[in-house]
Write a protein that binds this DNA or RNA. Structure first.
Lengths: 132, 132
DNA sequence: ATATGATGTTAGATTTTATAACACGAAAAA
DNA sequence: TTTTTCGTGTTATAAAATCTAACATCATAT
């Protein structure tokens, strides 16, 4: 219930996320540029990532490691395809470029990821103290 | 089991800890000076706090709010009194200064705190991915 | 009245992060 | 094959966050 709040709390600076995910700052910012994560910002404009953001980046990394490109990852991770305009175009193009086999593979990954990350419950007994 | 590892991972810069605990940087550093927390450091010497550190600071804050002073907090939170030399002296002095009533109060707080923070399990389904 | 304890504030140095631009190799397109 | 595009590395420059150390302050204890 409030687990969502907890998982969405902006907590980590990019340095921490780098070591947590073993992604470079460049990569993390690039994925953000493509709308795959939306870290909060401090007053001073520094990124602050939540547990959900980190999970997201770990998903992305898995997909990257499996050879999926940006377009594919967007297809998999961005739920509502009817909102952006630039992305929508790209996504359509991608769809045509993927074979049935590839699509099945992506779908499988998607389900695997969904399952994996829905289990991510982050029950931290005293996390309630983190909210005022 | 590896929950301990998870809870001890250096994750948070002092700014995050400030908003999480509502303590000032000055206070946090002061408590560290007194050995109440031992945050890790980055290569560049910036503090990185773990969940345990944050819990510790929240305990400290509770005690402060209850009117307990540094000496009392040390008494309560530092487990092994036979290790430091400077602290040991101070602690002995304090012991004499506390009335029976105060001692009971501190003991009660200690038990309350212990109970509260032993329940802090931090089971985060996918936290295992945070370790390499 | 003075000393101590806990915290605020300030100054100057260092680290971390930000954006933007350019480089580059691999893969895709022409 | 040549040319683009994609994903990432690298570099430069600026700004923010944090560090230590010193001094200020106010309440409490002596």
């Amino acid at each position: 219930m409030s687990d969502n709040i907890r998982r969405n709390m902006p907590l980590f600076p990019i340095g921490t996320v780098m070591s947590l995910t073993e992604l470079s700052a460049r990569q993390i910012r690039y994925y953000e540029e493509h709308g795959l994560v939306n870290p909060a910002r401090t007053e001073g404009n520094r990124r602050l990532f939540s547990f959900n953001d980190v999970s997201r980046l770990l998903e992305i990394k898995d997909l990257i490691d499996q050879g999926v490109n940006m377009a594919g990852i967007k297809k998999i991770l961005i739920p509502n395809p009817t909102e952006s305009d630039e992305e929508e175009k790209e996504e359509k193009v991608v769809k045509k470029e993927l074979s049935d086999n590839e699509l099945r593979k992506l779908l499988k990954d998607e389900l695997i990821q969904a399952g994996r990350f829905n289990r991510t419950s982050l029950r931290q007994g005293d996390m309630s103290r983190f909210f005022h």
